[in-house]
Amino acid sequence: MVAGTNSRERGRGDGVSDAVVVARGVGKVFGTDTDRVEALRGIDLQIARGEFISLIGPSGCGKSTLLRLIGDLLQPSAGELVVNGKPPRQARLDRDYGIVFQQPTLLDWRTVRANVELPLEIMGVAREERAARAEEMLALVQLAEFADHHPWQLSGGMQQRVAIARALGFRPALLLMDEPFGALDEMTRELMQQELLRIWTETETTVVFVTHSIPEAVFLSTRVVVMSPRPGRISAVIDVPLAHPRDVETRESDDYYRLITEVREALRRGETGEGRR
């Protein structure tokens, strides 16, 4: 089944022109001169259009920091980042990416529909257009009938689906996700992973996904980027040639287990420092 019959051939574009994210020697240092913490060092990474990339590693490996650098929520201390062919700041101003956090971060005083409309409102999209897009996105995450509910009336998994709908509502080229399923129980989590893959297939978005769950990274990704701490760096990049669409059978396949083992060992090597480049 390896590298088999993809319904749509996705994954690694070769040229820089086709890359959504390019990082060259990116480093990040927090704190003052006296109290410095080096969060990231020498990050080189290319993410092609349509890829699903997971950043995995132990706490303190800088995976969330890298995500925030891509989103221009933080600025790098060294190196260069290109997002959608532009500096990250320009990409943010052009609304080239949507972001989903571990907490749904929905606004309690807005209905589900109004929450999905929020970024569109900020971008000055006309009312009818907003309503149409919100409807479309809520249908995509299968929450159309909850449009007029308030976030606190929804379960955690449903709230996170609203957050995904909100992030995709303005059709960004890139979807950044920071441990989005970290606060969900295991059953909901597997359902959400399945959902996310379906949405990824339907929207053809590029996804950068931060997680510390090995099975989650393997199940979702086209490539897994393994990171190690002190300072945060990339210790291995592992291709995941599992066929699409992926489902419960994928989770039970030998290839899946082999890849999980591979990632686990890469993580362990990174931890003991063997994988250092």
Binding site: D94, Y97, I99, F101, T105
Partner: peptide
Amino acid sequence: TAMEMMRSYAA
């Protein structure tokens, strides 16, 4: 994160 979210929308 809510503030970061607004920043990501370039609000």
